[in-house]
Every structure is written in structure tokens, then in C-alpha cells.
Design a protein around this nucleic acid. Structure first.
Lengths: 172, 172
DNA sequence: TAACTGGGTTCCAGATCGGAACGAATATGG
DNA sequence: CCATATTCGTTCCGATCTGGAACCCAGTTA
């Protein structure tokens, strides 16, 4: 299968990655969440080539993750801002950052810390259950088929998704 | 800058992506979380080429995200299992899945639903503050420099990270 | 002895990437 | 009026990465 076809899978992770799974895209969004808005700023912060940046920004705009907002005419200039759909990626970025903080530390501590303004404390973003508010641990979550996979005549490639074993215990 | 150098950045997101940011890697991990363990199973579930799969699995093992565990000798066979470091990626995968459920739905509902065994309910994984337990909204979180970025003589490329503006309001 | 299974590796054409140069529209300084 | 700068791109080309298919190897079954 070609990478470009992953959005055809009946899988939300695959569909999400079809939008944000290319090189640089997540780093562009990281910068957007930290306040970067302009082409040149993205370029110099990231060290990406202009060509690639232009392509990635264009795709994010097409997908509705960013919008181009004019901030000056004559000459016409625009900046790139997160939409609501884009802001929805906050948990993904934060989870990546926390994992990096925990597992990829090179001994100098975290690059950034986060203050939760509404409670005033330094926060460690935690994934929790919407119903009981406990932290979600993979061994305690059981996936089951949702509406999109109930269809009895699925394309055969997707059939494997219907056999969901249980989650794993860690090793090592 | 070359993509291979992103792990040199003083940024946890970049470091995390240097491990899980390549094509296919996240989908391999998705399958691992759903119980896939063997080479051929990954291959047929994902539709990735054997070559690429072999390379990606090898890298994940090198990075300590998966371990190769023998399950049969003569002939020697092994399977790939998530380590604790690998299980640590659960919030990333879940956040991606939720975003895909919400924003990439094609009108047939979610592919998978998740039951939180310990409370018995269908859960919507939510990123919350470790201190006050409220859902974390990007406008309410202010990043500040952590230990790793306090060093007064940083390499100049990283200097841009020191200027953290505020977070954005959505548009559109 | 032939075919099969699990788990890879080799090879090559085509797609993607990085770097550097080029372009276009307006503003600024002299 | 001319040269230079700013902002946001696009074009071109050689290097790297990817996908598909074929090949390999150790045991196992028939």
C-alpha cells in the first residue's frame, strides 16, 4: 500500500496521520501553538526549506487546520493561524511533549514547563477518562467495534481490524 | 536542516518525533497496542513492504520502544512487544484517534469505541491538568522556559525558542 | 523431496527531499 | 529615479527514501 492511501483506511489514527503525519508538519504545528504565524518565522525557527514549508502550510490550510488571514494589504500579506480543528490537536502535541520530556531527556531537564493559568500550578498534562476522571492506563481500556466497523460487508483489507485481541502487558 | 538532525533540537516534541515521526511508525504502534506482535501480522494488517517494516521495527527496538521476545526456538522465532517506554505513547495514539474521530469522520461514526474497564463506561480520553483535574485548554496554558533552555549560552538556532509569545485564539 | 511458513534482505525505478538560485510585489533610503 | 530590502513564494537539480517484487534461509509438514 502506498502511504498516500492511508486515509482510505477505516481507522481514525490513520486518517489523522494523513493530515499531520508527514515530516515537519507536527513541528510546524508546535510552532503555531507557541505563537508563530508568519512564513519566514516558521522557516527560520524550523530550518525547513521554503519549498517544503510552502507545501506543508498549503496542505494544512486545505485540510482546515490552519487559515490564511490577511494582516496587511498593499502589499498583501497573510499569516497562518490555527483553526478550531487545529487547536484540537493540542492533546496530541502535549502528549508528544510529555513523552519526550520523560523518555528522551538528555539529562538537562525539560525544555519547557507549562503553567495552567486557571489553577496557577505547573501542570503535567494527563490523559484521563471522561466518565470517571481517572488517568487512562492502556491495560484498563478495552476497544470494541464502533459504528464504522459494524458494516458486515467491509473491504477485505479492513477485516483484520475486526479481530481485536486484548491489550498488551509491557516487557522489559 | 536535515530531518535526521531534529533530535538535536532542544525540544521534546522534536525528540519524540525523531523516534515516532516517520511514515508507518505510528501505525505500527497502533497495531501493537491492539495486540499485533508478529512480523507477518504487522505486514498484512498494514500493507507496508517487508523491507520498510523490518527497518521500522528495528529502529523501534533500538530506541527501546519495542522488545524482541523469543516465543519459539528451533526455528528461532520472536515477537515484538511494547516496553514501558512504548506504553508511554498511549496518550499520543489515543489523542490522535480522538482527533480523527472528531474531525475526520466520513459520516459513519467512529471505527472503534473504548470501554474503561475500571469504571465500566465508554470513555472519551481527555487531556487534563495533573493539579486541578480540569480539561487542559490551550488558551489557559502558558509555557515558560524549563531547565534545559535556561542555559545562557545556547546554540543560536535554539534562541528562537526563548521568545515564547502567547497562545493563539482560533480563527474560522 | 517438494512445498510451506516465518522472518527477513536485495535490487531497482520512481517519488520525495534539501539546498541554492530565481522571481514578484511593494517599501524604503538617498 | 535607482538600488536595496522585505515577505512570500517557485524552479531546478542532485541526493535520499520509498514501494514492489524477487530472492534467501532455517526448520516443518506431507
Amino acid at each position: 500500500m502506498r502511504w498516500d492511501d492511508i486515509d482510505k483506511q477505516i481507522c481514525s489514527v490513520a486518517r489523522a496521520l494523513s493530515v499531520v503525519g508527514e515530516r515537519w508538519t507536527m513541528l510546524i504545528l508546535r510552532d503555531a501553538f507557541l505563537g508563530t504565524r508568519r512564513f519566514d518565522q516558521f522557516q527560520s525557527n524550523l530550518g525547513i526549506t521554503r519549498h517544503r514549508l510552502s507545501e506543508r502550510l498549503g496542505k494544512l490550510v486545505d485540510q482546515g487546520v490552519l487559515v490564511k488571514v490577511p494582516y496587511h494589504d498593499r502589499p498583501l500579506r497573510h499569516e497562518y493561524r490555527l483553526t478550531r480543528k487545529g487547536l484540537g490537536l493540542y492533546p496530541v502535541l502535549m502528549s508528544l511533549a510529555r513523552w519526550g520530556d520523560e523518555w528522551m531527556d538528555k539529562g538537562e531537564g525539560a525544555p519547557l514547563e507549562y503553567i495552567h493559568q486557571s489553577c496557577g500550578h505547573m501542570t503535567r498534562p494527563t490523559l484521563t477518562c471522561s466518565e470517571c476522571a481517572e488517568p487512562l492506563r492502556p491495560e484498563e481500556v478495552r476497544p470494541r467495534l464502533g459504528p464504522a466497523l459494524q458494516d458486515p460487508n467491509l473491504p477485505p483489507q479492513q477485516a483484520s481490524l475486526k479481530k481485536i485481541p486484548s491489550l498488551l502487558k509491557p516487557v522489559g
